[in-house]
């Protein structure tokens, strides 16, 4: 069901650059890149969705890519993109769905840092206005 009854998935058209959401519809990131692994029989298998500035830097390439990569390293010191195993993906559609615990494991460190150090200290940051 998670590929919506489709026989095939075109990676550029249907997976790359789509929004990743948790079960509650909260944004997790974009499918910035994909990890492919060559199996013993020589065929390629898609194993992971990659997200975050490091992955995006590779997609952009060139000077802009290097700038994005440098910025990401400066912001949270990680050289590896965050990854979600494809087996944990529950649905591929207009958004790519993952369970909450998977989403929480790959949440952006810079978002957390900014929330804890800056935004939460401003009065009113904790109340939603719906």
């Amino acid at each position: 069901m998670w590929w919506q009854g489709q026989r095939t998935v075109d990676l550029v058209s249907e997976l790359l650059d789509r929004q990743i959401e948790d079960d509650d519809g909260r944004g997790v990131g974009k499918v910035d890149d994909l990890e492919l692994v060559r199996r013993a029989d020589g065929r390629w298998e898609v194993t992971e969705l990659l997200l975050g500035g490091r992955a995006l830097a590779g997609r952009l390439g060139g000077r802009v890519g290097r700038l994005v990569g440098w910025l990401t390293r400066r912001l949270h010191g990680s050289d590896q993109p965050r990854g979600i195993p494809l087996s944990r993906v529950t649905a591929i559609g207009p958004a790519v769905r993952v369970p909450a615990e998977v989403a929480d494991a790959v949440r952006s460190p810079s978002e957390r840092w900014l929330r804890e150090r800056v935004i939460s200290r401003v009065p009113g940051a904790g109340r939603a206005r719906e």
């Binding site: 998670w2 095939t8 075109d10 550029v12 065929r43 390629w44 298998e45 898609v46 494809l86 087996s87």
Partner: peptide, 20 residues
């Protein structure tokens, strides 16, 4: 410009996606 893949599931294993 594009990579086409197919989800595959052999009995008792996880679904995997292989490049066609």
């Amino acid at each position: 410009v594009e990579v086409r893949a197919t989800p595959e599931q052999s009995p008792g294993t996880q679904v995997i996606m292989v490049v066609d």
